[in-house]
């Protein structure tokens, strides 16, 4: 776990061991805000140590690596779940967890790199269904403990993807925009056409000085990313 200062606040990042997915945590008193809870073993311990009682969870999309921490959190805390309408439809059915995708991709990585990640993943593929407390069709403005969040659907990586702008200073992009790798639009539910027609123009319209907080890999300011791809 490491922390960075965003909006003059401490934002903690918990990166999962196998899939390297970033979960972002903001704590205010006994309340916590979590974006894309993963199964990082440190996360629960941290929340318990901070004596958190209520956890608000934002999802950038429906994929297993971004939701797999939720069932455990729900057994320990009062939770509120917020995601897009399409994301909600997918996570409502436990058949859609698709942890087997992750397992398969880890096997491929193992073959390529000589690692043993898939072995460690076995047993983590429990099926679960989730029902959000709030969902939205296109956009949503949401207040949490004095912080403002603007959700905007960004289909392409998955059907239920969205980006979440925090106080006009940072944006949780999930897998819709990554700082150090290409966005994948070929997973089931993904669409290159939707990404190019809807999401890319939206991302291109974001201000230069916005901090990108992606679902995987490093964070950076959009300006740096645009400079690299120019």
């Amino acid at each position: 776990m490491h922390c960075l200062s965003v909006n003059d606040q401490n934002l903690c990042v918990f990166t999962s061991t196998l899939i390297k997915e970033n979960a972002y945590l903001l704590v205010k008193g006994r309340k916590a805000l979590l974006v894309d809870p993963n199964d990082s073993p440190d996360l629960l311990a941290f929340l318990q140590k901070a004596q958190v009682q209520e956890v608000t969870i934002f999802l950038t999309h429906e994929h297993f690596d971004h939701t797999c921490g939720i069932p455990l959190l729900q057994t320990h805390f009062q939770t509120t779940l917020v995601c897009s309408h399409r994301c909600a439809e997918v996570i409502a059915d436990e058949k859609n967890n698709q942890a087997n995708w992750i397992y398969y991709l880890l096997i491929c990585q193992d073959e390529q790199n000589g690692t043993h990640l898939a072995e460690s993943f076995q047993g983590k593929d429990s099926k679960y269904a989730l029902v959000p407390n709030h969902s939205f069709r296109e956009q949503l403005d949401y207040q949490w403990e004095g912080e403002h969040f603007h959700f905007q659907t960004t289909p392409g990586h998955s059907a239920g993807s969205c980006c979440i702008i925090w106080n006009d200073a940072a944006v949780f992009t999930g897998d819709s925009l990554l700082a150090d790798r290409a966005v994948i639009t070929r997973f089931p539910g993904g669409s290159t056409e939707q990404y190019n027609q809807r999401t890319k123009p939206y991302l291109d319209s974001l201000p230069d000085d916005l901090l990108i907080l992606p679902g995987h890999g490093n964070y950076c300011v959009i300006r740096e990313l645009r400079r690299e791809t120019a």
Binding site: Q98, N100, W101, Y104, L105, C108, I184, R186, F187, P188
Partner: peptide, 11 residues
């Protein structure tokens, strides 16, 4: 490739 394989399985 591996990503395409995942899509095929889902299909």
């Amino acid at each position: 490739d591996s990503v395409g394989h995942v899509s095929l399985i889902a299909a």
